[in-house]
Design a binder for these strands. Sequence first.
DNA 1: AAGCATTGCAACCGCCTCCAA
DNA 2: TTTGGAGGCGGTTGCAATGCT
Length: 266
Amino acid sequence: MGRSPCCEKAHTNKGAWTKEEDDRLVAYIRAHGEGCWRSLPKAAGLLRCGKSCRLRWINYLRPDLKRGNFTEDEDELIIKLHSLLGNKWSLIAGRLPGRTDNEIKNYWNTHIRRKLLSRGIDPTTHRPINEPSIASSASQELAMPPTISFSAPNSDSKEDKSGILCKVENNNNNNNSPIIIREKCPDLNLDLRISPPSHQQNQDQPLKTGGPNTTLCFACSLGIQNSKDCTCTHGLISGTTSSNNSGYDFLGLKTGVLDYRSLEMK
DNA sequence: AAGCATTGCAACCGCCTCCAA
DNA sequence: TTTGGAGGCGGTTGCAATGCT
């Protein structure tokens, strides 16, 4: 079986792009705009796969690309975003104007990894290397599917079995089970709240953006706006995040709610 | 100067998700 | 509800540039 190739590979060029190919691609996109990558090569007179054209444009030819060395601020931002998002390079890139996911991915693998290792920090888990390995590394937590929310810290913090700073809050849902909150990035004022997927917000209780009880459903936490899986009153949150930026710092975290939608700048 | 090793990055590959039919 | 096309994404590879012996 297998899927059909994205383009006719027999008559396509591969490898490094020539100046002429670049010129053709840029000229075509300037004239017709982005989109329909599959038909673009033929229309632009390029013997390239559509995906290859898209990649070339996005990673190299786009006029808004910054290029040049990463600044120290960008380094630190990438590290913080990676500790939150893991290898979600496109989301990370969305927070660094003029940088591409491919560029950040390469930079991470060549520079930042080494930088963290030299600091004695595991670049995967963002924890000290000499700590005993634990079951719930940061990246594993990020892969977990339960409801996740971020809220302002309070004084009930304590470490869990794995040594991660946690706090326990009362849960207002039916089973009254406590909500375990793990602080992975205390310097970002973030809590990671994990509760059962069935967790529902009380519809009668409007969400208070940034308050300690603000909770996004898993779908919304991942940026799937208006998803059929949405179980929260995200309209209030998204309305706040999109129309009122006054409470947000550049990470969109100041109010305590990490809205993944805001990380995408497409 | 030559040969080998390492580094950095552009590009490719294959899988996943979304969406229209 | 299913299916297939298209775009997007993350992991990996290939190779030129650079450093080292």
